[in-house]
């Protein structure tokens, strides 16, 4: 025998019952409903924190990858247009104007990409809201708890403090909230991505010697 379940006549008697058991069985571990509730809540919080941290770092990695890919693509595009820039230099275009042209194109692409990303984000969030499975945590006298955390954010409800002796189910719903701040951040990052990519591309275009650019075989 390794567990004994004890029922108190009322919630107010629980501390007294605990003290009596402790006195009768000094080596025993005594767990009450508050401890159980705290344990489950802690698990849910840890899961949510882990999911948030993972999400944040994944976002950073994806952002760096996106900036890098955008910069490389812009530089590749500049490399393909070397003769065009050489021709513009032959026509008397200043390097700064050519850099501005490349950056302008890059930022414009960033803005369009950001707008497309917002649309896709809305669609993705709606899809998650529609398709996400309902997760739940059940807490009862047998301390049988199943818990789940949302990868995108979770909300728990159920009133753990009022568990009593009957099993209670805590529902956890996965949501992908789309807020104004998230949209502004997305547009800002898209434009910043365009700026970074355009800077690299423009820098490369500015370094071209006109004669060398015109001599480039496509």
């Amino acid at each position: 025998m390794n567990a004994v379940y004890v029922t108190a006549a009322s919630a107010a008697d629980i501390p007294a019952v605990q003290n009596e058991i402790a006195a009768a069985l000094p080596g025993a571990t005594i767990t009450d409903q508050d401890d159980l509730a705290h344990e489950v809540t802690g698990s849910l919080t840890s899961t949510a924190n882990l999911a948030n941290d993972l999400g944040t770092w994944l976002s950073v990695v994806v952002l760096i990858a996106a900036f890098t890919v955008a910069s490389l693509l812009t530089m590749a595009a500049v490399a393909r247009r070397v003769r065009e820039f050489g021709t513009l230099k032959a026509l008397g275009w200043r390097s700064s104007r050519i850099v501005g042209q490349v950056m302008g194109e890059s930022i414009t692409i960033g803005i369009f990409g950001g707008a497309a990303g917002i649309g896709l984000g809305y669609a993705g969030a709606a899809l998650i809201d529609h398709l996400a499975p309902k997760l739940s945590a059940t807490i009862g006298p047998a301390s049988a708890a199943t818990a789940g955390g949302g990868a995108l954010g979770g909300k728990a409800s159920g009133g753990l403090k009022s568990l009593g002796n009957t099993p209670h189910t805590v529902s956890v719903s996965l949501t992908a909230p789309v807020t104004v701040s998230v949209i502004l951040l997305a547009v800002g990052l898209a434009v910043a991505g365009g700026l970074v990519a355009g800077s690299f591309g423009g820098w490369r275009a500015a370094r071209l010697r006109p004669a060398a650019a015109l001599a480039r075989v496509e």
């Binding site: 230099k89 032959a90 026509l91 008397g92 275009w93 200043r94 390097s95």
Partner: peptide
Amino acid sequence: AALTRIRA
């Protein structure tokens, strides 16, 4: 810069 102006 001066050469660019002449080309222009």
